[in-house]
């Protein structure tokens, strides 16, 4: 009985750590200056927090209930596969829509490239 409690406690702490990561990244989502920096906060949240929370759920159902769920594993894999793709696509569309970088920025190597290669009309 006490072993089960200890395992459950560890899993609950894992879930808590995951949600704290999500909370910190949402703070960054508010505080950071422009969209590209906010994308950093978003990609961190979606990887680390979902990794911790879904891995905690997976371990809970394996150890306590004795049920190996392949769906949760697929969910972790899918989030890992799609989070960077969506971040990249949003950032690219923002840059092609001429969203300005924050005034603190020190370097912009992409501007010359975009000027010579304009894909959109």
């Amino acid at each position: 009985m006490s072993e089960i409690n200890l395992i459950e406690l560890g899993i609950a702490i894992m879930v808590l750590v995951g949600t704290i990561f999500g909370f910190i990244s949402s703070i960054g989502f508010i505080r950071l200056p422009d969209i590209y920096n906010r994308a950093h906060a978003l990609s961190k949240s979606s990887t680390l927090s979902v990794l911790f929370v879904l891995l905690g759920t997976f371990l809970f159902f394996v150890m306590v209930e004795g049920y190996f769920s392949i769906k949760l594993f697929l969910g972790i894999f899918f989030v890992f596969l799609t989070a960077p793709v969506s971040t990249h696509v949003i950032c690219r569309s923002a840059y092609r829509c001429h969203v300005e970088l924050a005034p603190e920025s020190v370097q912009d190597d992409l501007k010359a490239f975009i000027d010579e290669y304009t894909c959109h009309p």
């Binding site: 899993i11 879930v15 995951g18 949600t19 999500g22 949402s26 989502f29 969209i35 906010r38 994308a39 978003l42 949240s45 979606s46 927090s49 979902v50 929370v53 879904l54 905690g56 759920t57 809970f60 209930e65 949760l72 969910g75 989030v79 989070a83 969506s86 971040t87 949003i90 569309s93 923002a94 829509c97 969203v99």
Partner: peptide
């Protein structure tokens, strides 16, 4: 900008996934 709103919607989806996972632990 509109791009930030799209990004916020994506983040909402991520947090909803975490919420559903926590609820499935709570309700076993």
């Amino acid at each position: 900008t509109a791009s930030e709103r799209v990004m916020a919607l994506d983040a909402l989806g991520i947090y909803l996934i975490s919420g559903v996972a926590i609820f499935s632990i709570l309700l076993k």
